[in-house]
Simulated scan of single mutants.
Amino acid sequence: MLSVKEYAARQDISVGRVHQLIREGKVPAEKVGSSWVIDESALSRQPPLSRPLSQANAWSFIALLSGLEPEHLDPTAHWRLALKNAALAKSRTPAPLLSSWLCRRAPVLALQANANDLADLRSDERVVLSGISDDRAGLSSEHEVEAYVDPEVSKDLIREFLLIEAKHAKNANVWLHLARVDADADGRAPLGLVLADLADHAGPRESARVKELLSSR
């Protein structure tokens, strides 16, 4: 069995990316105590992935995807991100690229909530809906919630809604991305975040929607 850190080193990807792959069910893992462990056989199932952007560049790229101008970005970095943006537009399968590039944008918690509490969680003013819970995704998510929450209030939210960590990714019905996000005038997350979150789910519907949203920008 491999620790998350060992698996990340063997695959030449970040620890954060491994946790996302576990959440998405792409890497089979088991919880032992407070840590995830991965069978070595998973190494042969997971192909090498594109190297992720740094957290700062990931948020700059999210701004570009959202039609915004990134702040504090030097011309060379801007040019490189513009090339990635053009590559996404031309790609037949942009979702895997997007997921690999933006995996360092924010930590994410895979949680379980009482189904009766999901509507209240979805409407809580402390969260900004994204991914499958954003209306632009065009996906029914009544039984799931995906959102961004300021890390400073995340513990209060988790306590109030009695959210617990999902022992297996397939059992999660709440995904909380820990980052402070400014919603637009309509209360929605930047489009770039919606695209990144949908790409992380890696399902055929989500991947198809990523391509559609990219082409309609």
Rank of each mutant, 00 (worst) to 15 (best):
R126H: 12
R126S: 13
V127F: 11
V128D: 11
V128A: 02
V128C: 00
L129Q: 08
S130R: 12
G131Q: 08
I132R: 13
S133D: 10
D135E: 13
D135L: 05
R136V: 07
A137Y: 02
A137S: 15
A137E: 03
G138Y: 05
L139G: 10
S140K: 13
S140T: 10
S141H: 12
E142T: 06
E142M: 13
H143P: 08
H143T: 14
H143I: 07
H143V: 11
H143K: 14
E144M: 13
E144N: 13
V145Q: 13
E146C: 02
E146N: 11
E146T: 07
A147P: 04
A147R: 10
A147D: 05
Y148F: 15
V149M: 09
D150R: 03
D150K: 01
P151C: 06
P151G: 06
E152K: 15
V153G: 02
V153S: 14
V153I: 11
V153E: 12
V153H: 11
S154Q: 11
S154W: 00
D156R: 15
L157V: 01
L157N: 01
I158C: 07
I158Y: 05
I158N: 07
I158H: 08
R159L: 07
R159Q: 15
R159K: 14
R159F: 02
E160T: 03
E160G: 01
F161C: 02
F161R: 07
L162R: 14
L163H: 06
L163K: 05
I164G: 10
I164L: 07
A166M: 00
A166Y: 03
A166T: 01
K167P: 00
H168V: 04
H168L: 08
H168T: 05
A169F: 05
K170P: 03
K170I: 04
N171G: 05
A172P: 03
A172E: 04
N173D: 09
N173A: 06
N173G: 06
V174P: 06
V174W: 04
W175I: 04
L176M: 03
L176E: 07
L176H: 05
H177D: 11
L178H: 10
A179W: 08
R180P: 01
V181I: 15
V181Y: 00
V181W: 09
A183L: 05
A183Q: 07
A183H: 02
A183R: 08
A183D: 09
A183V: 01
D184A: 09
A185T: 14
D186H: 14
G187P: 02
R188K: 15
A189Q: 08
P190L: 04
P190K: 10
L191G: 06
L191K: 12
L191I: 07
G192N: 08
L193M: 11
L193H: 06
V194D: 10
V194C: 07
V194W: 03
V194Q: 09
L195D: 08
L195E: 08
A196F: 05
A196N: 07
D197R: 15
D197T: 02
L198H: 04
A199C: 12
D200C: 09
D200V: 01
D200M: 09
H201P: 02
H201C: 06
H201Y: 03
G203I: 02
G203L: 10
G203K: 07
G203H: 02
